[in-house]
Simulated assay, not measured.
Amino acid sequence: MISIKDLTKVFRFDQKEIKAVDHLSLTIEDGDIFGVIGYSGAGKSTFIRLLNRLEDPTSGQVTIQGKNITAMKKNELRIARQDIGMIFQHFNLLWSRTVRENIAFPLEIAGVPAKEREDRVKELIELVGLAGRENAYPSQLSGGQKQRVGIARALANNPKVLLCDEATSALDPETTDSILDLLIDINERLGLTIILITHEMHVIKKICNRVAVMEKGKIVEQGDVLDVFLKPKQPVTKKFVEQVMGDSDGDLSQLLDVYTSGRVVRLHFVGDSANQALISQLSKEFEIEVNILQGKITQTKLGAYGTLVVQINGSDREINNTIQFITEKTTVEVEVLTHA
């Protein structure tokens, strides 16, 4: 488990103080894929660098698997960092070294014998899908291939935690998906904990189990990814959800002006309920007409999530029975937007 308590980082410039991380507390379970999302300047890159002491905190504590990272001396920290791999936005590869030599570099620093080092590098090259590119230099690789080298290098010492600092933001969408698929595979195969920071909600929904939203150095919202998608509480979280779902409220007022008969309701689908043929079922069960006005369903790692805005026409009694049926007999949440 990773325990972060009251973590703070203050930078001082020209007699001014900038609080990049502000009394932040989090708990991350072993084996989780935990996302931290925030806009530029939220403090997320500083936060992740505090976890392995690339930045020293001003105050607070980071404990990883029972070890207080923040209290360690240099020699202790050097050993502890072997359990914490890190991959970067711009790869940070050694341009004068081949793929094989880049991956071997942390093993050389750790003093691993040559034969053991060679075997481990070969294993990692296979794991990240770079077989046949062992002798290529970074300048001969695509962005996705460079990041695969970075991932392999981060895994060299068999870490228990992998930190990902905007690991896909320099990549195109297709390459991003392939790297995220690789991280999911690594998490499942090796059982290591992944902490991933990003400004892209697509990354969170595809790979993460839990997410924390950062703003001005603080965690303003956190929870299971599906819960955050379903009921974002903070304005900044709602903006991130709109990256994936679109701004459904933007056109809603116009719809309500046009569709004035019956009742307009918003149906919130989550998990398996998003795949139910609910509209067809309602039309068969009740003497109503259902018109779909607006909607979108998206897939997260833990299941589907989405909303449908529908107009229900019929007698008051049938409409009330329909809404009661949805509320009591399904896992779909109903929000009535207009009344007859």
Rank of each mutant, 00 (worst) to 15 (best):
I4F: 09
R12S: 13
D22H: 06
L24F: 09
I37V: 15
A42K: 10
G43S: 04
K44F: 10
K44G: 06
K44C: 05
S45D: 08
T46N: 03
P57K: 05
Q61C: 05
G66I: 06
A71F: 07
M86W: 08
F88S: 02
F88L: 11
V99F: 08
E108A: 02
E108P: 01
A110T: 09
E116K: 13
V121E: 07
G129Q: 02
G132K: 05
N135V: 01
A136P: 00
Y137V: 08
Q140G: 10
S142K: 11
S142I: 12
G144T: 05
G144M: 07
K146Y: 04
K146F: 04
N158T: 07
D165Q: 08
S169W: 10
L171N: 06
T175P: 03
L183I: 11
I195E: 01
K205W: 01
K205D: 00
K206S: 02
G217S: 06
I219E: 06
Q234E: 15
V241E: 10
G246V: 09
G250F: 14
L255H: 06
R263Q: 14
G271V: 00
S273Q: 15
N275I: 01
Q281G: 00
V290P: 03
G295W: 06
G306I: 11
Q311R: 11
I326C: 01
E335P: 00
